[in-house]
Amino acid sequence: MPAFTPKHLLDCPDTQTFEVFAEPLPSRASRFPALKSKGSSRGEIYCASSGRIIVYESALERRAAVICLASPDVVDIWDQPPPVIYTIGAGGIERRHTFDFRLVLKNSCRIAVAVKPYERAIATCFFHHMRLIARQLDRSFADKVVVLTERELDPIAVQHAELVLIARRSHDPEADAAIQHVAASLIGAVSVNQLVDRTGLQGRGFYAIARAIGIGMLQPVSYGPLCGYTMVKSLVSEGRL
C-alpha cells in the first residue's frame, strides 16, 4: 500500500467546500495580556464551533487551548473569564485570580483551568494556591479546578488536536458520511491509509477521519503523529458512541 503523503491532502475535488468567510466574534476575555510582556507569546485561535476568537498569552496556553477545542467532551471554552475572589491567611486577606480558561463539558460540568509550567508552579507554590481557591470557589462559576502543565499536554496529543481543528475548517458531509458508514461496521484496528482506501476519497477521507476522531467516533490506538500509518478503531462499532 502506498504511503499516505502530503499530496493526498491537496487532491480534494470540488465536492469539498470551505465555510464562507465571516468576521469572527470577539473574544469574551475579561482581560488581555500586554502586547510586549516579557516571555509572552500572545496570540489567538479561531473556534469554529462558536465562531469566536480564543486568546492565549503563552505557547503552553496555546497547547492547552488546542487540546480543549478539539476535545469531543468540551462544548464551550471561555478564555480569561472574570476573576474569582478568594481569601488567604487568618486575617482573610482578599485576593483575585483570573483562570486561563473555563470549560463546560457535555455533562454540564464546569472546569476552571489554570495553565502553568511545572517548575514555576512548584517554585511559586501554585498548586497550594489552586487548592485554596478550589475550596472557596463559587459553584456557579465552576465545579472543579484543574492545573495543566507541560506534563499533561502531550506533544502527540497536541498534534492530533491541531489536525482536528484544521479538518474542521472544511465542510464535507459526503466524506463524513462515508467514514461514518465504514466506522459502523469496522472490526478491530486499521490504519488511516486503509480507511482512506475504503472510501476512495483520498485527502477528503483523511480530513473526515480527523473530524471523526474529533467527535469521538474514531480513536487512535497507536502512539505517534496522526498520519497514514496511524492505527485507529471505531467506537461506534463497539457501542461506545
Rank of each mutant, 00 (worst) to 15 (best):
Y223F: 15
P24I: 06
C68W: 11
C125Q: 13
Q219I: 02
D176Y: 05
V232Y: 12
G216N: 11
K233R: 15
R139P: 05
A212K: 09
L25F: 10
M1H: 11
V115E: 06
I122M: 11
G92M: 09
A177H: 13
S40N: 05
R211N: 09
L105Y: 07
S170F: 07
Y229F: 10
P6F: 03
C125D: 13
A70L: 09
L186V: 08
V84T: 00
P24M: 10
A177Q: 14
G214L: 13
A208V: 02
A210K: 10
A112L: 08
Y46S: 04
I45D: 07
A134W: 00
I77T: 07
R135T: 06
R204S: 12
T98V: 07
D197R: 13
G228C: 10
F32C: 07
L165S: 05
K38L: 15
V190T: 08
G51D: 01
A34V: 01
T149G: 08
G188L: 09
P2E: 14
R211M: 14
G239Y: 03
R63A: 15
Q80A: 10
H8R: 11
R110V: 00
V145Q: 11
I215S: 12
L132W: 00
A90N: 03
K144G: 04
R95L: 11
T87N: 09
C68Q: 12
G214M: 09
A167F: 03
H181C: 12
K38S: 14
S108Y: 10
V104G: 00
L235H: 10
H181I: 02
